[in-house]
């Protein structure tokens, strides 16, 4: 029901290399280009952030595992450009033409970069009606963790929290619902909550039972406990 990107709680990954504070921002020149090409192509407005996350998640498990971070970005971007019809498979194969694209007038200009990055893309939307849950209330996450509208679709409920019981800490108001927005089904905003889970609720052998994991979860991921 889940995909390879959903790795919270997984065993076997080994030690973390904390690196050094003076490490370069971009380890390779092409990392910087991959980041910039991805952001600039996103500014064409042909997809939203949930679609771009889902494009990375839809890489095959083998590619997702083998690819480095920015390799995932650039490969998912190529997939997205073809899926949305901005480019054709012939273009990617080097058999397209170089005529000016109909979307070229939307290309991000250098002088607009600062404003576009500063504007960002707020995900909050006006609340319609009252939130179903109040701070302090006990809730349970749906099980399994999966998109309810699209089989194998995008969701932001991690598998490790499926079926787990927690407590509402706060409501952030209504936010765009990724499970819908990633599939072009509309923003479908709904209340977003921070939910607190005791480590003992999530893990068979908790490191410390009283430690906590906090997750931001949409209302339809939750039911009263």
């Amino acid at each position: 029901m889940t995909r390879v990107h959903d790795m919270g709680g997984r065993f076997g990954d080994g030690r973390i290399d904390p690196g050094h504070p003076e490490d370069p921002i971009y380890a390779q020149d092409w990392h910087a280009r991959a980041l910039a090409v991805t952001l600039a192509a996103g500014a064409l407005g042909q997809w939203n952030i949930d679609m771009s996350r889902h494009a990375r998640e839809r890489l095959s498990p083998r590619d997702y595992t083998d690819f480095s971070y920015y390799e995932k970005w650039i490969s998912a971007l190529a997939d997205l450009l073809v899926d949305t019809g901005v480019l054709s498979a012939d273009d990617l194969a080097g058999q397209g033409d170089d005529t000016r694209h109909p979307l070229a007038e939307r290309a991000l200009k250098a002088e607009d970069v600062a404003a576009v990055l500063a504007r960002g893309g707020p995900a909050d939307r006006p609340m319609t009606g009252m939130p179903a849950f109040a701070p302090g209330q006990r809730v349970r996450c749906l099980r399994p963790a999966a998109n309810r509208a699209v089989d194998g679709g995008h969701t932001r409920l991690p598998a490790y929290a499926a079926g787990a019981e927690g407590q509402i800490l706060r409501c952030h108001g209504a936010h765009v619902f990724p499970d819908s927005n990633a599939h072009g089904l509309g923003e479908a905003p709904e209340p977003l909550y921070t939910v607190v889970f005791a480590a003992a609720e999530l893990w068979a052998q908790p490191e410390r039972p009283g430690d906590e994991v906090m997750l931001d979860l949409w209302q339809s991921y939750l039911e009263p406990a």
Partner: peptide, 12 residues
């Protein structure tokens, strides 16, 4: 194809 501007990439 005119879809990205190399100067904008440098700026990002």
């Amino acid at each position: 194809k005119g879809l990205i501007d190399p100067a904008a990439l440098d700026e990002i």
